[in-house]
Structure formats: C-alpha cells, structure tokens
Nucleic acid binder design. Sequence first.
RNA 1: GGUCCCAUCGUCUAGUGGUCCAGGACGUCGCCCUCUCAAGGCGAAAACACGGGUUCGAGUCCCGUUGGGACCGCCA
Length: 472
Amino acid sequence: MKIRTRFAPSPTGYLHIGGARTALFNYLFARHNGGRFILRIEDTDRERSKEEYTEAILEDMRWLGLEWDEGPFYQSHRFALYREHAERLLNEGHAYRCYCTPEELEERREEALKRGRPPKYDGRCRELETPPEGRKYALRFRVPEGRTILNDIVRGTIAFEHQEIEDFVVLRSDRTPTYNLCVVVDDALMEITHIIRGDDHINNTPKQMLLYRALDYPTPEFAHLPMLLGPDRTRLSKRHGATAVGAYMEMGYLPHALVNYLARLGWSHGDQEIFSREELIEKFTLEGVGRSPGVFNPEKLLWLNHHYIKSSSPEELMEPFLRQLDTLGVDATGDERLPLIMRTLQERAKTLKEMAESSLFYFTEKVEFDEKAEKKFLTHEKAALLEMIRDGLKGLEPFTAEDVRALFEQITEEQNIRLKDIAQPVRVALTGRTVSPGIFETIEAMGRELAIKRLEDAIRRIKDRAREGITA
RNA sequence: GGUCCCAUCGUCUAGUGGUCCAGGACGUCGCCCUCUCAAGGCGAAAACACGGGUUCGAGUCCCGUUGGGACCGCCA
C-alpha cells in the first residue's frame, strides 16, 4: 500500500517551529517511502481562523521546501461531508442528541473541578426518552464499554480505558462539526496511512480510533512525536521568543539550516549532525525518532546556519543576502563585486542579516569612523605608510588578494615593520573600524577605486588634524 | 484532581545485557594559528534522577519513588 501522510495546521497563527518539525517529519517519511504528502488546512474554527495565517503558513512551507503533493484542502469547504458522517453515526446508534447547553456544561464542569472530580460529561442525555421541545441539540458520540489499545510506532503500546473517555461532541448545536470528527473523516477519506503528529494528541487518539471503528474505516498507523520545549521545559510557545518560522527567515536563517536543525530535534541517525535534504530523505525512519521531549536550542541552530553560510557559494546566498541588504536600505543588485564581498563575510557571519550589516562599508559612499579606532590607528606617523599602500595599489596588476599581500609584504620588508603595524591603520582607513575580514581580501573585494579613495580620505584627515594641532 | 507520556553531560543525542571508569555535536573554558574579528587545529571540564529487583553481568529488562511535561472544551 502506498504511504500517505499529512500535515494539518490550523490557521489560527503563524507556522511555528513545532509545527514545522511535524510537517518535516511527515514530509520526510512520505518521501523516504516513496509516498505522498498531503496538506490540509483545519479551519473549522471560523472565529479564530484567518486567511492571512493560511497564506503565511503556505509561504513558510514553501520556504522550507516542504512541497506537498496534494492540497491544500480546506475543512471549511467540507462541512457537508462531516454532517453526513455525523448523521450516519446518529442513525447507526453511535451518536445521540444532547440538549445540554454550553452554559450548563460549563457550570457543571466548574462544579466538578471544585469538588476535585473529573470534569467529564455525565452522559445524562444518552438515553433521553422525552427530548425537550424546541431546544437545540449537539450530537455526542456514544463511547462504548471496553478499552482501546493504541500501538504507536514511536511510543509502543498504550491502553485507554473507555471509562476515562467522555461522550464527546461530534456535531455542535449550530451544526458545525468538531475537530475529532473532521480529522477522522478527512484522514479516512484522504486515505492517510500514517498519522505523524505531536504527542499532545495522544489523548485524542482513542476517541479517533473509536470513530474510525464506528464509521467502519480502516484505522491508520499512529506515530506521536515528543513535544518541543522552551528553555524552561514547558511547551514551546511565543513567550519563549522567536518561534515563528517566518521570523527565522527575517533574521537571516537559511531554510535548510532550520530543516537540518529540526530534523535532529527528536530524531537521530547515529552521530551524524549535518544532513543534506537528500540524506534526510534517504535516512529518515520513524525508528530513529526518540520518545523524550526536546528543548529548542537557538545556539545550535545558529551554528548550523553558520555552517551552511560558510559552505554555500555566493550565488546560492545571493538572493536572500540582497534581501537583507534591501531591508538595510542598500540596493546592491548587479554589483559585480558581490561574490567577492560575500566570500569575505561568509565565515564571519552567523546569519545573513549579520552578514548584510557587516558588509555595509563596502557599499556606502563614505566610511563612518569609529572614533576610538581612528584616534588609535590613524596617527600622523602612519600617513606615509598609507601613502605607500595607496601608491602601490594604483599600479597593482592584477588586483587580487594575493597581489595585495605581496604589496604589503614588500612594504613591511622595506620599512622593517611588522604586518600588524600597517594592517590595522589600513583596516581603519578602509572600513572605519578595527574589525573586518582579512585586509587583503577586503581590499580585493572592495575594488581598487574605492580602496584608493578611502586611503586618500584617511590621509587627508590625518593631515587636517595635524594642521589643526599646529594652529591650535 | 484524573488520564497519558517522558527521564544519559547545561542543551540535542549515540547507546538496543558484557567491547561504556559511557561516544559525538552545540555551548563553555584553555592552548595553537594569526593583520583585527572570525574560521580552523588541539585539549579540558561536563551525564546514565533515585531505590529495589531479574541476571554471572544493567545506561540497556521489570517494579516502585521522585521529578518534568501534555491533555482533560459545543478549540484545533
């Protein structure tokens, strides 16, 4: 049988890290087995569902490269289907009409909680002989006696006593279906073979299994993934900081870094840390999924991001890098120096945002001098050295980092000075700061024209200051 | 409170009864390299929650304790 998995987010918020991991595991499992990955939007909560969230979720899925084979299907378009199934349950005796109002139920629930009793529906409408006139009713599933055994692929065997399960609502009094019904009907009709989801759904599973049975559909396999936790070991949520996938895109993360990180959170393949997409597909199995919840660790994600930035080609990073520059107000499109510039920054930037920020000196008209740096390194006695470099660069041909190095070495030798005596002043002259990529590669990437202009500017500043010093 | 789940370094994890005085990775610290910052190299500190069993032998199996988490809706 062909394997079919699905990811079924509800559009009541943006795609978050936990959801993305669930989607990824479904995707990988389907791809690994040559199956199909289906996307379904669970938007039956009309109050909270928003179209903008749906759009954002789809965009984030695409960004992560989690291509789905079918869908997106929208539950809000399938209400008739769910009602039909609810009717069937009613007609076949698996469901009954419940005339209790939400207010009454809420009251009883609070009462039960206050007394320390389980806040379970008491089943009072189960065998109603004389239903009240003119009152709205909901449809509740009649949970039979016995127990349900779940053979979870990652958890193993879990038994649920039916006594613990209340007669849950399948169709609300406004005729809208509830989650448990929708999920089962859709998963059954879409012929989902493996339900891979967060283990916050474990307690729903027996209800759903009961529904499959009552509806006479084959029960799929279940695999419940351990939760993702925040640093305080509670379920990962917004209050733990950035958890939306889109936020990571904006912060300059590479989609594959996130994919690689998420894959290793709750799944492992021996000691391997770095996986290409192809490797993930090839190696992913549910047997490799762990059982214990995992703490989301931004530091390790950052490391992976850095790893992929370092090992990518400038061409691969070009588009997202330009986007980051754009948000900083720089349009560098078409700048031929870009590949060289990027190469100087790749091993120094953990995110593309950081990379864009530290690349600004390449693109601005004038350098912004760090006051301390200028005072310390652009001193009067360095002016002559800067002039030598400037002159040397003028005729340097070809103009590669290696040629620049040769020029510097020649000068340090002639002047009997160390490289550091000249590299720092030049660095400050060119970038305004004491920290930058290697000075030779920086000069090459910057280009002859800009480099010379900046050296001259620095020399002028030194001389201007000296003159002021004399007159003052 | 009830039900269910989980338990190896700070974090992610390897480990499927002996090869584990527990391995890798992130992070941390130290050293080296060095034109700054990185990167890189080398090294260090750092864990089997506890208690009982089972077994010749337990991180690995069983039970309990403790601790953590999730769920208990006419939300999904």
